[in-house]
Amino acid sequence: MTGNSPLLSVEGLTIDLPAQPGLVQDVSFEVGRGRSLALIGESGCGKTLTSMAILRLLPPGLTIAGGRIVFDGTDLLTCSPRELRAVRGGPVGVVFQEPMSSLDPTMTVGDQIAEARLLHLGERRSVALRRAEELLDRVGIPNAAQRVRSYPHELSGGMQQRVMIAAAIACDPKLVIADEPTTALDVTIQAEILGLLRDLQRDLDLAVLLVTHDLGVVADFCDDVVVMYAGHVVERASIDELFYSPGHPYSSALLASVPQSGSPRTRLAVIPGRVPPAGRFPAGCRFQPRCVHNRPEVCGRPQPDSVLAGAHRSRCGRVASGALTVEGVPRG
């Protein structure tokens, strides 16, 4: 493949439950080689489903109803099961949300890190375990030679997540999908894990797709952002564009709801109402019932995904047409 095509491209992805078509609808984004992209939104917006759909790891009952997912030239939605397995754990590694339950309690962490190498490279167990030890060392676990024989319950949550990361990079992937990798951890540990991911991204030239609901994490970590709301992508932007000139009322409201450490004793902005449950999404703009700029006669119609500038896109017709400007974070 040429260096210019994106490593991962998701186009028009739609995920259905039998009773609730359009749980995730028409989601498109791209991850460039060595780049980091955040998929951000409130709980239930479909960001985790979207990330799981890439390797077709959706829970039973959920189906991919449309779209294309192309990774490094392979269409993951039409390829054979064998081709799909070759991608899983090989050029694409995954770090899941809850390290404790995502690690097999009956298997040593060394064996779990080595597993992908046995599967993809056909290495002997002893060889793969030596590599697992190096990987444990690489992700900052002291005493790797002993820890390789530990079981998950013998490690702290932070250590477990380091193990998950070591397992995800075991076969030198090009892309790591990290689904809320720090949500289950203490705040101090969160920073360490993010630091580790950032180091690995730089050192191994990894592309990272980070699923999170934490704007602070996004600001620290990512080049680009995809903002999701109720199964729609509402905005795609670079990190600077999102923070300083957001292109969607929802993005703007999200930014306003982050506590500012520089201005104590100010009232924290909240977004009124709650995310509609799947299956009861309003017609047209899905954010419209909670939007302070709501104009029913305009917003009740389907909103096109419009280009604002370059790669900056928004699903708010009024912002795109210049009829509405929303606020970002003040510069400086």
């Binding site: 390797l55 790891l57 397995r85 070759a86 991608v87 899983r88 754990g89 090989g90 590694g93 995954v94 899941f96 809850e98 339950s101 995502s102 690690l103 097999d104 309690p105 298997m107 779990q112 597993e115 992908a116 599967l119 993809h120 998950m164 397992a167």
Partner: peptide, 19 residues
């Protein structure tokens, strides 16, 4: 979740059952 993790590593069904 750990079964999904193993699938995400490229495990076949037979491998999942055995391991």
């Amino acid at each position: 979740p750990y079964v999904r993790t193993a699938r995400a590593r490229g495990a076949t069904t037979g491998w999942l059952v055995r391991r």
